[in-house]
Simulated assay, not measured.
Amino acid sequence: MAADTGSPAEPLHVAVILGSSRDGRFAPTVGDWFLNRAAHHPNLSPTSVDVATTELPHTFGAPAPAIAGPRATLAEADAFVVVTPEYNHSYPGTLKNFIDLHFAEWQAKPVGFVSYGGISGGLRAIEHLRAVFAELHAVTIRDTVSLHNPWGQRDEAGALVADSGADAAATTMLNQLTWWGDALRTARAARPYLG
């Protein structure tokens, strides 16, 4: 009998959501850095979902085709990671709109967070997002990645060069996300979640 390695038998599909849509945003830089870490983590298959390039209806009850692309990606995902800046001690309004326009896609799945901002590193945005995802029956990962004043931490090509602490935090969060993602995928397959 083979030893249990603690890794999922099939790769976990992880939707990495870039939560900012402002002009000149830093989200793609942080997102690229994190996607690179996730792509090199064992048994994860990450996909990027960008709220800035997703056409979102501004009223509820809008036709579903307007968000069919992201909806399919979210429905197929086993886990999520939200990359968010901190705006006015919280997260962006477009991210809230994106989250609220979906419901079943989040249920009984884990959500990790990568935040960035000034001295707080975006941690207040994460704390607000935890309450939102709890209401949507998602499980949030305890450990997060928080980047403090990251704008000057880029190489000559413009890529983020995070310190060893951020790299270690990403590994910890991805390990926990993998555990929860595998456990909840197995549970959903055995018995549909009653949200």
Rank of each mutant, 00 (worst) to 15 (best):
F26Y: 15
S146V: 00
G112H: 03
T144V: 14
G61E: 07
D50Y: 12
T84I: 10
V81K: 02
L160S: 10
A190W: 01
H102L: 14
P192E: 00
I126T: 09
K96N: 12
D155N: 15
P70T: 03
D167C: 05
V14F: 06
P192L: 00
P92Y: 10
A68L: 02
W106F: 07
R124F: 07
D163W: 03
L56G: 08
T29S: 12
N175Q: 10
A79E: 04
A39Y: 02
A66P: 02
M173I: 03
D100L: 07
S7I: 03
T47P: 00
A169E: 04
A104H: 08
I99N: 09
E135L: 14
F133R: 08
G93D: 12
V132T: 15
A2W: 04
A159L: 13
W179V: 11
Q176S: 11
A187F: 02
Y116R: 07
A125H: 06
V51G: 11
D182C: 00
G19P: 12
A39L: 04
A131L: 15
G122L: 06
A104F: 06
G69D: 14
D163H: 03
H128C: 10
T53P: 08
A66E: 13
D78R: 04
F113L: 01
G93I: 12
L95N: 13
A3V: 10
Q107K: 09
G181H: 01
S164L: 05
T59Y: 14
T47F: 01
L74C: 04
G69R: 13
A39V: 04
S164F: 03
T186P: 00
E10G: 02
T172H: 02
R154K: 15
V82N: 07
F133V: 10
T94D: 15
Q153W: 05
A2T: 11
S115R: 09
L147P: 05
P46F: 06
H137R: 14
A62L: 04
H89F: 13
V16A: 05
F80A: 03
L184A: 01
V145G: 02
N149G: 08
H40P: 06
N88R: 08
I99C: 11
A27L: 12
V145D: 02
A169Y: 01
T144D: 11
V30C: 09
F80D: 04
L74G: 03
H148M: 09
G152N: 14
A157R: 15
K109Q: 03
A138F: 04
L101T: 10
Y116T: 10
V30Y: 09
N88S: 12
S164A: 14
K109P: 02
G195T: 05
A138E: 02
L95V: 15
T73R: 12
A138H: 07
V51R: 11
F34E: 05
A159W: 08
A104S: 09
S7P: 00
S120V: 05
S20F: 11
L18K: 09
I126V: 15
N97H: 13
F60K: 13
V16C: 07
D167L: 07
G69M: 07
K96T: 09
R154V: 15
A183L: 11
L147E: 05
